[in-house]
Design a protein around this nucleic acid. Structure first.
Lengths: 193, 193
DNA sequence: CTAATTCAGGAACGATTGTTCCGTATTTTT
DNA sequence: AAAAATACGGAACAATCGTTCCTGAATTAG
């Protein structure tokens, strides 16, 4: 009955993730979105509602993607400790190679918006909870397989791991480019496991 | 030869720290500043230049205060490990009791501005470097006194400590109010020392 | 007391903000 | 082919942004 969209909604969302990630919510103007997503103001507002809804959708999509990736890796893993190490190494590589350092979209959004926007706060909180679960299950598996020390409770270690992951992403956002700094942190973290 | 200021410049700066800390740079409008600092637009601009300069001054002042406090505690300390523990405990208490959770002004500013504003980036970088030195010296002292394990290099541990400090401040900013989460992280961190 | 100086308050600036609306083009269904 | 429906591009909106400027009051030096 009607004309078809000339753009792919998910592709537009991926673009939105990129620019929000890079510039933050308040730092990204409607004009920025029009320019970067490559679609008109009307299409943008017709499709996504307003800026806040677009941001919220972007963050949710990012969350899903990031979470699935880590979850898959850990659930399929034969040696959880090694897989966790690989995940951290990957975060370090991304932190260093990103010419425009973006940190972690979730961490950035937490800091900028969580306390002012309940909807964002919920996404962040859900993410923390899910990541805690994923890490806790992974650590349990590693402990049972004898790869990870049983000296500490799995949940304690999960929270510890998540905390250092956040810290590393903040470090990336500050523009730190010395690999040794990241490697030192990872080394100390994995001395606990 | 002229009229004296009716406000105290440092007191105004402390007010600026509070509101920038709470709302961020982009989230704080000139009107917010006028309302919260309690002085007129003209006085504000005559005294501090523009918004960016005011922010920069605020962050520098905060940095100096925070740094001096930690530095003093550690240099005067007889048992560095205990003092570090106390510093972390204090961060946890602040994270929980703050009715409006603000996290850490330095961390928030890093995430929001470091990659877009060279002047802020410099303040953040200087802070990181100084904190790394302070923590490194503290750890060395602790190692020599036999309070801290010598298994790892002092600099490695310093970076690790700083990373977890950042992480905890991010956690606070997300609104986490479960003390157990913070305690678990601190427990795991100090198992390394 | 007078002159010089700097203060505070607020009106006003242009620029940019997020958002809406309208006319036109395009596509699908009847 | 006609009609209905939606996407598109861009003009236009009011509101707010950071900033400047003007006015008169207040204070100090001579």
């Amino acid at each position: 009955m009607a004309r078809t969209k000339e753009f792919n909604e998910d592709q537009a969302l991926d673009k939105a993730i990129e620019i929000f990630w890079h510039k933050g919510y308040n730092g990204t103007s409607a004009q920025d979105l029009v320019n970067y997503l490559g679609l008109s103001r009307s299409s943008l507002y017709d499709t996504f509602g307003d800026k806040q809804k677009l941001f919220s959708k972007s963050l949710s999509r990012y969350q899903r993607q990031a979470q699935d990736s880590v979850k898959d890796l850990l659930e399929k893993s034969e040696n959880v400790k090694e897989t966790l190490h690989a995940i951290f190494k990957q975060a370090v590589i991304e932190s260093l190679e990103d010419r425009i350092t973006k940190g972690c979209f979730m961490v950035n959004s937490s800091v900028e918006l969580a306390m002012h926007d309940p909807e964002i706060a919920k996404i962040v909180k859900d993410n923390s909870q899910i990541m805690e679960e994923v890490f806790t299950n992974a650590v349990k598996k590693g402990q049972e397989a004898g790869h990870i020390s049983k000296q500490m409770d799995a949940k304690v270690l999960a929270r510890f791991i998540f905390n250092n992951y956040s810290g590393i992403r903040v470090l990336a956002r500050t523009g730190e480019r010395d690999k040794q700094v990241y490697d030192d942190i990872v080394k100390a973290v994995f001395s606990v496991l």
